[in-house]
Write a protein that binds this DNA or RNA. Structure first.
Lengths: 242, 242
DNA sequence: CGTGGCCTTGAACCTAGTCAAGTCTAGTGG
DNA sequence: CCACTAGACTTGACTAGGTTCAAGGCCACG
């Protein structure tokens, strides 16, 4: 509505978006991308701590992250939060709500974050006429299934060291894919959130970070991480206990 | 090809299938169901131990289970199998292969099992013209995402007792949904497979079963299970340690 | 400069894993 | 039909990795 918003909207069409290559528009033609673009809503950025949607809210849209980072969490039976994922630019969230018509998790910004809102009914109609879009939506859901399976493997098979190593390698690869350094980056989430996500106590996370530093695998100053021994960290993440 | 196969095929159209209400054809009209039916292939039943598809095989079809039970597993980095799910009649499997064009898990029959093969390219074309089918396919994927999230919660938050209780309650509900007894049923999987799936050692699974019996929650004779105290088992599965 | 939140460190405890027998069961062949 | 065997299951004793509890340090922000 304001000039600022208009400016923001004008700046960011799918065809100009550097993330298009990993987002929904993959392999759409220019006119198809326009059609997609027309249904996308781009609001003002979220600030750290802002809620994008709440578990139980009516499911109307899925969201593509344009920048920043989001955590999603559900409430466990005891009422405390269980983080189900950390999401970076180019990723789609909210899809698990499709089944029940309500979001199954809450999504909160970990830092200043801008998102594209994609009303699902419109998207659904569009997928009927754009096979490539349909395919990509399916692909993204399928990929999430695969990632969840890897997470299950991590949770049921890996020890604390391996879990943290896996997370670091995973983040590193995702940063690289987005054009950032794979070697040095800043964690958007707290130790507490890492522990919650990986099924570890905060204390354990902390201890593993110190141990990794003592062994010269990484340096960690607060949230600033540098990977020193990528090879060995990979090996750890991969499974074998060195 | 044989008479037997023809008979089998004739017997089982989607519109006659008792599982249609939880499978893909939900809320399709008769003619739409025919269209779906035309692309479905129904082969001879699998016997216990038969492989439906292998991790790494080219992804061409998804499969709907008509009867029996299937386990899916991936190989962990150390090379041993990690079971990612037990699947019963009416469920769809193979969808996580969509992303990579290869199946990400191996699917093996736990008992005599018949499946409907649904070539994905045909299904995809059909979803362009059948909005209800598209919706249902999305829903099923979305549901699987939600179930995976619950599994992650189980693996990162629940102790051995709660895990086993959750599995039993979950199976019980699924049997009920299929018209079988929710109170007494036969497990298709071994203790080993249960442990593998839930991230527990076989010995732990065994101990929990005995403990549950001592506390009068269930009886277990081999794979035959009877739930004696549904309420308390639910409470356990739900989270609180009684 | 003080406060609160986040992070780190230490010590004790506990759950589930591992190792090692031993039992039960289903399937096989004499 | 029964004896035999391999695999599945159970049970006990010990161990280890991670949680919990408790305390103290660090940093950012008012």
């Amino acid at each position: 509505m304001s000039n600022a918003t208009n400016l923001l909207q004008r700046e960011t069409h799918c065809k100009d978006c550097s993330l298009a290559c990993m987002c929904l528009p993959i392999s759409l033609h220019a006119d198809e991308m326009d059609a997609l673009d027309r249904i996308v809503k781009r609001g003002r950025p979220l600030r750290k701590g802002d809620v994008l949607f709440r578990q139980g809210d009516e499911f109307n849209s899925i969201f593509a992250l344009r920048s920043g980072a989001i955590k999603t969490y559900g409430l466990s039976d005891e009422g405390d939060e269980q983080i189900t994922g950390f999401h970076l630019a180019g990723e789609l969230i909210g899809m698990s709500g499709m089944d029940t018509e309500r979001y199954t998790v809450t999504a909160v910004a970990l830092e200043t974050t801008s998102v594209c809102e994609i009303p699902f009914d419109n998207l659904d109609e569009l997928t009927a006429v754009l096979p490539q879009l349909r395919k990509q939506l399916m692909r993204l859901m399928s990929r999430e299934l695969r990632e969840d399976q890897e997470m299950m493997l991590l949770l049921s098979r890996k020890n604390a060291d391996q879990r943290i190593a896996t997370l670091l390698i995973n983040l590193s690869a995702r940063f690289r894919a987005r054009g950032y350094s794979a070697r040095a980056f800043r964690l958007a989430m707290s130790r507490n959130e890492i522990g919650n996500y990986l099924g570890l106590a905060v204390e354990t996370v902390s201890r593993v970070f110190t141990r990794f530093q003592q062994h010269g695998l990484i340096t960690a100053e607060g949230k600033q991480i540098e990977i020193l021994d990528y090879i060995q960290l990979c090996a750890l993440a991969g499974g074998q206990t060195e």
